[in-house]
Structures are given as C-alpha cells and as structure tokens.
Design a protein around this nucleic acid. Sequence first.
DNA 1: TCTTTTTACTTGACACATCAAATATTAATT
DNA 2: AATTAATATTTGATGTGTCAAGTAAAAAGA
Lengths: 156, 156
Amino acid sequence: MKTVKGSSRRLTAREKTAQQSVVGILQTADELSRRFAAVIEPHGITLQQFNVLRILRGAGEPLPTMEIGARMIQKAPGITRLLDRLEKKGLIERVRGTDDRRQVFCAIRSAGLALLRQLDAPVAALDERCVAPLGMGQRERLIQLLASVRKGLPGG
Amino acid sequence: MKTVKGSSRRLTAREKTAQQSVVGILQTADELSRRFAAVIEPHGITLQQFNVLRILRGAGEPLPTMEIGARMIQKAPGITRLLDRLEKKGLIERVRGTDDRRQVFCAIRSAGLALLRQLDAPVAALDERCVAPLGMGQRERLIQLLASVRKGLPGG
DNA sequence: TCTTTTTACTTGACACATCAAATATTAATT
DNA sequence: AATTAATATTTGATGTGTCAAGTAAAAAGA
C-alpha cells in the first residue's frame, strides 16, 4: 500500500471526521484564548486569573481552593499559585477554614470586583464577535454538540 | 435593577449563547488535550512535541522554524525551545539554511518516525472515542461550525 | 484512643506560552 | 557601496499547567 507523504496509513472517512473534529476544537480554542488574552491582559491580569475572579464573583461567597479547581477543570497545584498571584495583587483574599482547617477559602475583594466590572463589557463584546458568523440556531447546535462530546468523554 | 448573585448585569439571550459557545469550546479543548496528553506522554514526549513531529512527517521535507510555528499557530520563541527538546531526544535534527542563513531547517529523524508509528493507532482510537457520541452528520456539522467561527475571527 | 487512610493544600521540578530585547543576515534605500 | 529596515531565531523574564512529594488535619478502622 502506498503511503501518503510520510503518513503511515490512509484514514477511513469516519476516522477523518473524528480527527478533524478534535483538531478543529483544539485549534479554535487556541485562537479564542489568544483573543481573550489580548483583551484582558492589558488590564493587569491573565485570562486564567480573570476566570478565577469570575468564578468567585459568580459564586457570591468564598470558595475553597479545590472547588475553584473543580470549576476551572484544573489540578490543585496550578490553582494554588494562581491564587497566590491574585492575592499579591490584592484582588482576592484567603482565609483558613474554621470548620475544616485543611481548607482555604478564597473571596474576591472589592478591587477584584471593580476590575471585573471594567472587563464585563469588552469581554461580552468579544464573546459576541467570536461567534458573530453563527445565528442563534447554529450557536445552540454548537453548544449542544460540544456538550455531547464532553459528556461522552472516556473516564469523564 | 437587582443584580444576580454578584454578576453585574443580566445577559441577553444572544449574549448568553455567545458566552456559552466560547466557554464550551475552551472547556472541551481543555478536556481533550488532557486525554491526548495522557495517551502520548507515557511514550516520552508531550502533546506539543507530538504535534511538531506529526507536522514534520506530514510535510515530508525539512521545514524552517517559522513554518512550524505557523502550522502550530504559535509564536517563534515557543517553537525554538520545543525543537530544542525534540533535538535533545534525538527525534529531530536541525540544519542552518544554506540559501538564507537566517533560517534553521528542521527534519524528523527515523527515531521520530518510529515513535509516531507507535502512536498512530492509539491516537486515532482516541480521536474516535472523543467524538464517539456524534454521528457522521453531527461531526461534519461541528467541523463546519468551528470553521465558521475561525473564519470570522476578528483580525484573523 | 491509637493507627491508617483519605483529603486539602503547598512546594519543587519541568514543559510550554508569551513578550521584549539581542543576534545574525538579507532586503531595500539612498 | 553604506545605511537602514525587515526577517528568522534565540535568550531572558514571567505566568501557568502537570506530576511527585511533603505537610497538616479530618475521617475510618481496629
């Protein structure tokens, strides 16, 4: 069997759509995070730090480190250091739990809320620009397809 | 106007689908890369290193650093160090260009090709598992929707 | 109650991304 | 030809993610 330019073997149609779907998701995400970083970082925080702040604001109450990690789909070590930097900037504060003293609760401070307020409009505008080519029906379909993918993920 | 649990303002339906689409893409990509990393890293290379090797194999000829960067949608500095590590592992080799001596051409070595051959089947299998819940029609729709998003991206 | 296991983090080591600044070299200009 | 501008990479500093180990405290079990 002839090989195709160094590729080891031809893919079936099914394999091809699988690969294209995966590559499409990964590439699109890469491009999107770059755009969001470009809007957010000039304000002195990174995209991930922004996400933590939004989670804390959305929760409306202090959250333990692990809970933030769960919502960020991310391991604890990364979260700890992310919180370190946010704390150093005065955007959040951490308090050792009293009930369970292993936990560290994290709350957004007013400076953090103020920063989020500044970013709300530009970020919402960028959300919209990112999916501008899609009508409402297409957006809903996209959201649905991605949810199906996540739900069916092996070991997840 | 009452605020919703710390959130600054209510989103319109349109804004909400935009945000959900973006978040969905980013989260799904996160989960997917984790799965691929879990399959690839036990073989001694990272997901990004694997991507570089696949690009080099697919090209079928040595590529300059910048060209690899373009295909990875990534800036040059990152590529340089990625190539450093692949070179140290003996999976690629670099040669200073003769025509334009600023360029550094990068070629995959036989050890790199052998490693890719080992990974081809498990990676294709994972591609398939990742989108297993979707039928062919849905995969094609997903690929199309993501392509529309990328095509319409501001400044891209 | 004392030991063992399981959490919730934290810290150390390493991969990787980006920006900014340096290098080397080629292209454009004057 | 000499100077200036643009290009291809590399290096240094910083933020972030992961795994492996360590610490502290709560939960389980004997």
